[in-house]
């Protein structure tokens, strides 16, 4: 198992804030909108640098999505910022009609996704957003795994033409990817080559997959770990190549098991290479209040859950 270390923990939303500032410096057409959550989305640095390119929308997310669509007419590259729940479920129809169906170059940037939002509870912990967004034709869906990757992804989507859903989170987690990485949309990242099982992980679950890989190595299981930061378009080549070698799959995501990364992989495999698969995901339920780590353990989204899923799926291999 390749060794991953970290010297600090940071939140992925801060990676977004840093990436937004960098994108704004590089491209004068980048503009940002926020629905009364500037501090939570870490947008202060961009606002300080480019006050005239920032739109404070107030608590009106539907209006924000519509205005973002309108700003593209005239060549702007708008980044909207609010929590993942208010970035998707609250405004699904606005995104569907004014952005996706209208082919607008809007970057929907969504923080506080999933259970790790923590204490605020299920009203704010959206676990269905990846599913909603990936069902929209033409929408690119990205869920990076740490601060550095989120920063790189934010800069990359500014240069990409088309609507994007960028999902990130609230808690501080280890920073373990390369600060100078080149983020390639739609290209999976090989975290660890192995031969016994393919673990496809996204977002906060990538670090948990690394911890699981270390535990599995102690048990004599050689796990291949792949970071699927781009859920749509899915890197089918990387997935099929890995599964060809390992013959079994565990998917890991901070999302409902219905409609998330696991389903995308299952669909690909069903058509190309039917393979035993176990899901590490929320089992079709809402979340609840609690500390992020407590919630991830209770809902089966941590390294231990990945280890258990790997043992189960290996036993299913013929």
């Amino acid at each position: 198992m390749k060794k991953y270390t970290f010297t600090e923990k940071k939140d992925t939303r801060s990676g977004f804030g840093a990436g937004l500032l960098a994108a704004g410096k590089k491209n004068p057409n980048v503009v940002a909108l926020c629905a009364d959550l500037v501090g939570s989305l870490k947008m202060e640095a961009f606002i300080k640098e480019f006050p005239e390119r920032f739109v404070q929308v107030g608590i009106s997310e539907a209006n924000m999505m519509g205005m973002a669509a309108g700003l593209t007419i005239g060549g702007k590259v708008p980044f909207t910022g609010t929590f993942a729940n208010f970035s998707t479920g609250r405004v699904y129809d606005q995104i569907r009609q004014s952005i996706a169906y209208s082919d607008k170059n809007v970057k929907i940037c969504a923080s506080h996704a999933g259970l790790t939002l923590g204490e605020d509870g299920a009203t704010h912990q959206i676990l269905e957003d990846i599913g909603m967004m990936k069902m929209l034709p033409g929408m690119t869906v990205i869920n990076p795994c740490d601060y550095n990757q989120t920063k790189a992804a934010t800069e990359a989507i500014a240069e990409f033409e088309g609507p994007v859903y960028l999902r990130f989170g609230r808690p501080v987690i280890p920073v373990f990817t390369d600060p100078d990485q080149k983020f390639e949309i739609g290209k999976a990242w090989m975290v660890n080559e192995g031969k016994d099982v393919s673990i496809f992980a996204t977002g906060h679950l990538v670090w948990e997959a690394i911890l699981a890989g270390e535990k599995l190595a102690e048990l004599g299981i050689d796990a291949e770990i792949i970071n699927i930061h781009t859920i749509k378009p899915l890197d089918a080549e990387a997935v099929l190549k890995s599964v060809e070698k390992t013959g079994c799959v565990v998917t890991a995501e901070e999302h409902n098991r219905l409609g998330g990364l696991g389903d995308s992989i299952a669909q690909l495999l069903a058509q190309n290479n039917p393979t035993p698969q176990e899901y590490v995901a929320v089992n079709d339920s809402f979340g609840e209040s609690g500390k992020p780590a407590e919630l991830m353990a209770k809902y089966g989204l941590d390294a231990d859950a990945i280890v258990a899923a790997v043992q189960k799926v290996i036993a299913r291999k013929k």
């Binding site: 129809d93 009609q97 004014s98 169906y101 607008k104």
Partner: peptide, 30 residues
């Protein structure tokens, strides 16, 4: 709809209530 590239249309509409926001965005861009 814009999807079929009919000249003159800049955003899809039909689901009501969305056009004012889009127009404001376009006005801000101007």
């Amino acid at each position: 709809a814009t999807h079929e590239h009919l000249p003159g249309i800049r955003v899809a509409s039909g689901s009501l209530g969305q056009g004012l926001s889009v127009a404001i965005g376009a006005a801000l861009a101007k």
